[in-house]
Write a protein that binds this DNA or RNA. Sequence first.
DNA 1: CTGAAAGCGCTTACAG
DNA 2: CTGAAAGCGCTTACAG
Lengths: 355, 355
Amino acid sequence: MLINSLLGIFVTDKKERGKPSITLIDVAKHAGVSPMTVSRVLNNLSIVKSATKEKVLASVAALDYSPNQAARSLASGGTTQICLLYGNPSSAYLGELLVGALEAVGKHGLQLIVNRVPSDISIEELQKNLDSSWDGLIIPAPISDLEGIRRLVEEEGFPTVFLECGEVSGRAHDIGIDDYQASKDMTEYLISLGHRRIAFIQGPPNHRTSTMRLSGFHDGLADADVEVDKELIVEGAFTYRSGMQAGLNLLEASNPPTAIFAGNDDMAAGVLAAVSEKGLKVPKDVSVVGFDDSPIATTVWPHLTTIRQPLAEMTEYAVRLLSEVIKEPGKQMKKTHLLEYSLQMRDSACPPTKT
Amino acid sequence: MLINSLLGIFVTDKKERGKPSITLIDVAKHAGVSPMTVSRVLNNLSIVKSATKEKVLASVAALDYSPNQAARSLASGGTTQICLLYGNPSSAYLGELLVGALEAVGKHGLQLIVNRVPSDISIEELQKNLDSSWDGLIIPAPISDLEGIRRLVEEEGFPTVFLECGEVSGRAHDIGIDDYQASKDMTEYLISLGHRRIAFIQGPPNHRTSTMRLSGFHDGLADADVEVDKELIVEGAFTYRSGMQAGLNLLEASNPPTAIFAGNDDMAAGVLAAVSEKGLKVPKDVSVVGFDDSPIATTVWPHLTTIRQPLAEMTEYAVRLLSEVIKEPGKQMKKTHLLEYSLQMRDSACPPTKT
DNA sequence: CTGAAAGCGCTTACAG
DNA sequence: CTGAAAGCGCTTACAG
């Protein structure tokens, strides 16, 4: 099943509703140039002499001008469309992803199409759903982890931004956080709390984020000279249920961990359930931390200590990038873009009580 | 803290990208009238003779014409703005709410502003945040339950649609589902499974949905001649933690229930935690059902049997309604609009095993 | 590198 | 009830 929605966007500054808003012509007069020149500056066409450009930019700032997207789109005879290919069945992220994308899409006068596909869609199936009228693609995890997806967009020739997957390829861009470092930070945090027996629940190994997070955990331990016990590294599926099962196994071990680091929040929430099933308390008996800061992190009790990713910023950035790439296909740009994450300390982790 | 984002929208049919798209003028020619007349028909101005109107509509259909929103907005000198006042800190709904609103807003050539406010904001504070340039308001729960909110929008003169609160007032509209009937359906479902000792965890009594759902539960029991045990009706706060606490209390009673109906999914998820803490299993030892079909319902294990609300449809409907009200302020319209809900049967409920 | 002209597809305001 | 004219604020394509 395929859910498709076409979301078009444009934003006009309505602060001065009623009052005649300032136009490109006003700016041109103010700067002493023709409207055409202003237009060129605004569209970043590099042919403008830099002195002229500065003059125009100054006038834009002085008059607090913002272009009318409706006029822009009318005149240019169409709008560029960007498709967000979304496929995570636990649709917790969608809201944040959308907010960022919409904001940017509005600012740049583009249209956004939101296309939901099954997370396990085949490449052939996906290919059928690609519309040649799209001017760009934004592909978040887990679709971005699909085998062959990179080749597909490359072959079809779509300017593309992948989200959260940290791998550069072809002409596509990647935006994400440093999963490795974030995971390492979390591990160091747990160690700083006094934990030494720390378990890690990995996500599916075919997800880049999974393996990055595991490496970060591993190196965080190693760097602090804490022994890496292979028994304490188990595999989950990024789902609540798999986290619960993994937590149960971990807790039943002869020498259970004092802290459990789950590769995502859904699994961490599952671990919470496992802990309580064992008649134990979080964080008193065992600390539990996650990754993502998804809505579930602040729904469950206790609230999860986790890593927050700036999802809205990512899509916002993705749209901006795409907009530039579409305008000037030849332009040289950075391929990988790392955004800042943050460690959210909440109530699911504390120093170990039993030694 | 206030998060404000301006989302503007417009949609153009891009199927025929490249090919010159059909315009209002094409339609006018086809129908043998002036462009102006077509414009009037499209904008539903009632002054057009109905014979002419039909002719035009036929041409619109024949040519598969859809108006260019950019041109429309340019010509009319602005766009009407609708603000979605969102305040639920457990922002699980936002995604779905947005999708519906955006789709409709695009179709009607409006702008959407998404404004997040604290759920416990005071009316004075809220009033400060109302922008007179907005042409309409959409207010979902829990903001719609705020004391005095109805009076405020009435005084300020905003065309307003309230979501999920089932109360008609002033000139505002209400869109929602029949919480009472849905809750009654769920209760009857539990009874049909064989349950007789059914507990209910109510939400905060100042929320209309809370009390409606409680009434539905009550009457569902009464209609089936099942005794209503007051001990089994407890109050929660619509949060996971309150559901967990209520579940614990219920389970520790001398004569515990065989099924627990929580007033929303967050609380139902909390009950799941309580059940496992008691060393019991869902649904074998006790059935647990929720309400809302929020993302958490299909995250936790077992997945929750719950009531699904068509959130996207609600906002879509709300935008359509607002658009009409704004265009023709005097128009008579239904005040309350009930949409269809559905009972999602999943894995958290089954017939009782112990008698 | 910069500008003057024409036009994007609609709606407003004014006539009839 | 219907139409002819002008214009919304930009950009395209063509000159210089």
